[in-house]
Simulated assay, not measured.
Amino acid sequence: MKILMYSTHEHERTYAEEWAKETGNQVQMEMVPLTAETVKMAKGFDGVSIQQTSPVEQEVYQALAEMGIKQISTRTAGYDMLDLETASQNGLTVTNVAIYSPRAIAEMGVTQAMYLLRNIGRFNERMENDHDFRWSGDLIAKEIYTCTVGLIGAGHIGGATAQIYKALGARVIAYDPHPDPELAPFMDFVDVDTVLKEADILSLHVPLLPSTEKMIDKEAIAKMKDSAILINMARGGLVDTEALIAALNSGHLGGAGLDTLADETTYFGKQVDAEAVPGDYHELAEMPNVVVTPHVAFFTNVAVRNMVRISLNDVVAIKTGERCKNIVK
């Protein structure tokens, strides 16, 4: 079987080569994303695997179908770059890697939260800019076991996040439209308003859908504590960036840890000229109570290996008619 991997990164190559050797399948790796221009590269292949945040154009689906390809496998948990309805209309099955390493995302979120909770960025700013090594009451920190951590979304990543915070002694509350009773030992399920109002650390773990776009807007932020820390390891579009910046500037929020931004597709994952970087990134990155990372919460050796192998296994499963648990409904 011949599989084309789009948007291949160097760190994925070893794992793809290992998989091909083990399974006897052929994998061709290309660095370009799947687009209306590059879809022609898939001719002669049995399936495709992608990893991108840029939307797949409408004409791509028909082109793949005309080549006899029956699926698109994304090496990510998120699949908002794909139009599921158009894929279905063209006989294409979409799969994602929902569980590649929930701990990887969870650990990054907790890391950023602890950095912000202990005011490390603010201390660094004073030391670097003013050579001021004094303590002051405005930078006294809370200890994590005294905090309430609020989760919006309690799936695999939210569940892993809850377990880490619970082990650190924090109180964990969560809102999820479909609460999993197996997670009850690690969190208390409450309504979304209670999460917003009571959380010292608010962590987002939901997909980007029309119903969740800008769910953290001016009104939601107004319900949060003045000292609250917002953590977004999910999708940038969940947060109204303008409202977030206003709240940080006014002192209404204590800080923000962001592995994703709404406009990230134009520069995350690339090296770009300074003028190509949007102003909202510059404004956020210059704040000592904000941490911005370029969508790398997933970026561990365990996660990358699993993403590659699961995605390629799914291509084979769809092609051969085997059972596949990662089909996006």
Rank of each mutant, 00 (worst) to 15 (best):
P55E: 06
Q26A: 14
M233C: 03
A20E: 12
A246F: 00
E128T: 13
S101I: 01
T35C: 12
N232S: 01
E286G: 15
L209N: 03
S101Y: 08
V172M: 04
Y267C: 08
E85F: 13
S54A: 14
K43D: 15
D200F: 04
A184M: 03
K225L: 06
P33F: 11
E125P: 04
I69L: 11
P288I: 09
G68P: 11
I173T: 07
P185Y: 05
I164V: 10
E128V: 12
N301W: 08
D46M: 11
E59C: 09
I173L: 09
M187R: 02
P177Q: 00
Y61F: 13
R126E: 11
V277S: 01
L248S: 02
A113E: 01
I50W: 13
E213A: 07
G237R: 07
P185N: 07
A141D: 08
H252P: 01
T14M: 13
L284I: 01
H156P: 04
G91P: 07
T265Y: 02
S227N: 10
G155K: 00
S227D: 08
Y61A: 03
K197S: 04
G279V: 14
V48L: 11
Q62S: 13
D193V: 05
K2P: 09
L238G: 00
F123Q: 05
Y175D: 04
S250A: 14
H205C: 04
M81A: 12
L151H: 03
F268S: 04
T74S: 07
E125K: 12
E85K: 15
L116D: 06
L92E: 09
Q112F: 01
C324T: 07
N313T: 14
I221L: 01
L84H: 12
G109Y: 01
L4N: 14
K223S: 06
Q52C: 09
R171W: 06
V149L: 00
I120R: 05
N124A: 10
E213V: 03
N96A: 10
E264I: 03
K2R: 15
I105T: 06
F123V: 09
I173E: 07
K43G: 13
L64G: 05
I120P: 08
W135V: 08
P177C: 06
N232E: 02
K197T: 08
Q62A: 15
F186S: 07
I245L: 09
L183S: 09
N249L: 01
T194A: 07
A160C: 09
A243V: 05
G155S: 04
I318G: 09
M29N: 13
V195T: 04
G159P: 11
S227Y: 03
D263T: 07
N306L: 10
Q163R: 15
I3D: 11
M287W: 06
M215P: 06
